[in-house]
Design a protein around this nucleic acid. Structure first.
Length: 589
DNA sequence: GCCGTTTTCGGCCCGACTGTTTTCAGTCG
């Protein structure tokens, strides 16, 4: 059972509790909601954590829910859930997947029309809506009937729209709306918040905040965005639109003097905000997007803050970088003024994973720009050095000798660039396949031509965990193999990645001075943040690379840095923050 | 049902918008 399936089961339990008695089960509802979110946001598989006895380490999962999950894996169902879900038709759980339809509406509709069959409920409800039958039900009306019909039709035709956007794509959409908003004379400031500001690998909705002293005009301007499909909602303080591409943009406004509180509120995460507000309550303070109320004083006057720094400071906390606002210990450390100094883009001194167009005849893809073009571009990025890491020459089409001379020819070209171009240092690397038996795709003679090797898995992904771990460690065991590229092999929204025992891998890397790559490519962002966090705890070295196949991709470094920051990595954890000489020493160690 | 530097008992974030009401329920972030 996947994390998503478990989260869905928990959301069904929440819905069932809400339908049966929302007040009586209020705190169970909260608990299962939190647990569902935790499970959905965990990059580790719940099944693995269950096997390893680590379920209790997840926030919001206590003894009871841990027991439920254990029962689920042992017996394939949970007796308590069977009881909770009893009497609620399965079609209800289909309807609650649709935005604007919650448990109460879903249950009323299913009961009213006896729509017990989950496979037919959408079609039949569309029919009822078109027939004007929903409007006749008490507490429903013509407007809500039309809203439900539209929601049903959108759900039916556009299921794929619900896939979350990869980060850079969301950033592009956000840039366009921000540029539009900034053209308005009534808007003092417009910034992107939410999961995009926290640099989550994928983004659902785009959240935007605006500072204005004329909220009505600002909101009217926002909903007049020319690339919108329709207005989802519009009030005096917030509004939402759907772009013509089907992406939702949420807007919140505050006057300039209260903008700091809004920045804090709308950045999230939800778990961070809930914890922060509970933390504040204990000090007698109540937080909202408007500011801070002192509950102790008589007047209970609202204090406003024009910056986030001042807002956090008023709570006795140092400012917390958005990337780590996930309620995983950051509030406690901010209270002790002891947050980590997260690595920054400006700390990066070079990119060690670049694919040029040098005809090295690899079995995987070649880059689109020359060695020289990429070296020149690296200078524009203020790098001190680059590493060229084309794929190894294909082993099926070349003899060992051919391979040796292909690499030697590339090295000659690199030497020419080094001697003619004093502005940049260059490392001679390669990205080398780890074959299924754990050996590297090229032999020692060829490896001797290199400053070091990046090794990676590009075949037989479906190997079992133990064998894959053995294979990777074997590949990394060669003295020249110093970096494991894109260690999980995941592709966001496409494939989950192969099975690896990361504890064993961390242990090996620690003892043998190997580094794990944080790959900045938008569909990879691999290592994932949770594994980076573990690697930091293990004191494993990492390297942030772009895996660029063209000049423009070399700009993606910021996304790798963002993942490193989400994983609490500091400058000292990342080897390509080292100056050239020290980096070379590290490769030789 | 979770959680702990006020607490192993007794708390549990805060506010927005819509539609159907005539003061609120439902949904969302």
């Amino acid at each position: 059972m996947s994390n998503q399936q478990i989260a869905k089961l928990f959301r069904n339990v929440v819905a069932a509790y809400s339908i049966k008695d929302e007040k009586k089960f209020h705190f169970q509802i909260l608990a299962y909601q939190t647990a569902a979110e935790t499970i959905l946001n965990t990059t580790e598989e719940i099944k693995d954590l269950y096997k390893e006895g680590k379920l209790i380490s997840l926030p919001g999962i206590g003894e009871t829910i841990k027991g439920r999950i254990e029962e689920l894996f042992k017996k394939d169902h949970v007796a308590h859930f069977d009881w909770v879900l009893k009497g609620i038709p399965k079609s209800v759980f289909v309807l609650i997947e649709i935005p604007t339809i919650g448990p109460k509406k879903a249950y009323k509709l299913v009961k009213e029309f006896s729509l017990e069959n989950p496979d037919e409920v959408i079609e039949k409800l569309i029919f009822k809506a078109k027939n004007g039958e929903i409007a006749k039900i008490p507490s429903f009306g013509e407007k809500s009937e039309q809203d439900i019909l539209r929601a049903l039709l959108e759900y039916k035709t556009g299921k794929n729209k619900t896939a979350r956007m990869v980060l850079p794509y969301a950033a592009e959409i956000a840039e366009r709306i921000i540029a539009y908003l900034k053209k308005s004379s009534v808007i003092a400031e417009a910034v992107v918040l939410g999961s995009l500001r926290r640099m989550m690998p994928t983004v659902g909705d785009i959240d935007v905040a605006v500072a204005t002293n004329e909220p009505e005009k600002a909101i009217q301007y926002f909903v007049s965005y020319p690339y919108k499909d329709r207005i989802v909602e519009k009030g005096p303080r917030t509004a939402s639109i759907l772009t013509s591409g089907g992406k939702q943009i949420d807007l919140m406004v505050q006057p300039t003097e209260g903008f700091g509180a809004l920045l804090q509120h709308f950045t999230g995460s939800k778990a961070h905000n809930v914890h922060l507000r509970e933390f504040a309550l204990k000090k007698g303070l109540s937080l909202s997007e408007k500011g801070i109320k002192n509950l102790k004083g008589k007047g209970q006057k609202l204090k406003t803050y024009d910056s986030e720094e001042k807002f956090y400071s008023a709570l006795g906390l140092s400012w917390i970088p958005p990337e780590i606002r996930e309620d995983t210990g950051e509030i406690e450390l901010a209270e002790q003024q002891n947050l980590p100094q997260l690595v920054e883009l400006s700390d990066i001194k070079g990119d060690l994973h670049l694919h040029s167009d040098f005809p090295i005849e690899p079995s995987h893809d070649l880059g689109h720009n020359s060695l020289n073009e990429m070296a020149e571009y690296a200078k524009k990025l203020n790098y001190e050095y680059v590493g060229f890491s084309e794929h190894n020459p294909s082993i099926s089409k070349h003899s060992k000798n051919d391979i040796y001379f292909l690499i030697a020819r590339r090295n000659n070209l690199i030497e020419q660039i080094i001697s003619s171009n004093k502005g940049i240092r260059i490392l001679k690397l390669l990205e080398i396949d780890i074959l299924t038996d754990g050996s590297l795709a090229i032999n020692n003679n060829s490896l001797d031509l290199l400053d070091g090797a990046i090794v990676s898995i590009h075949s037989s992904f479906n190997t079992d965990k133990n064998e894959m771990t053995k294979r990777v460690i074997e590949g990394l065991s060669h003295p020249k193999a110093k970096i494991l590229a894109h260690p999980t092999g995941r592709l966001l929204n496409k494939r989950p990645g192969y099975n690896l025992d990361f504890e064993k891998l961390f242990d090996f890397c620690k003892k043998n001075n190997k580094a794990l790559e944080i790959n900045s490519w938008p569909l990879r962002l691999d290592l994932p943040d949770s594994l980076i966090r573990q690697a930091v705890k293990y004191k494993i070295k990492m390297v942030i690379n772009t895996d660029s196949h063209s000049l423009s991709e070399m700009n993606l470094m910021k996304y790798g840095v963002a993942m490193a920051r989400r994983g609490w990595a500091e400058k000292c954890d990342i080897i390509n923050t080292l100056p050239y000489e020290k980096l070379l020493d590290w490769f030789k160690k």
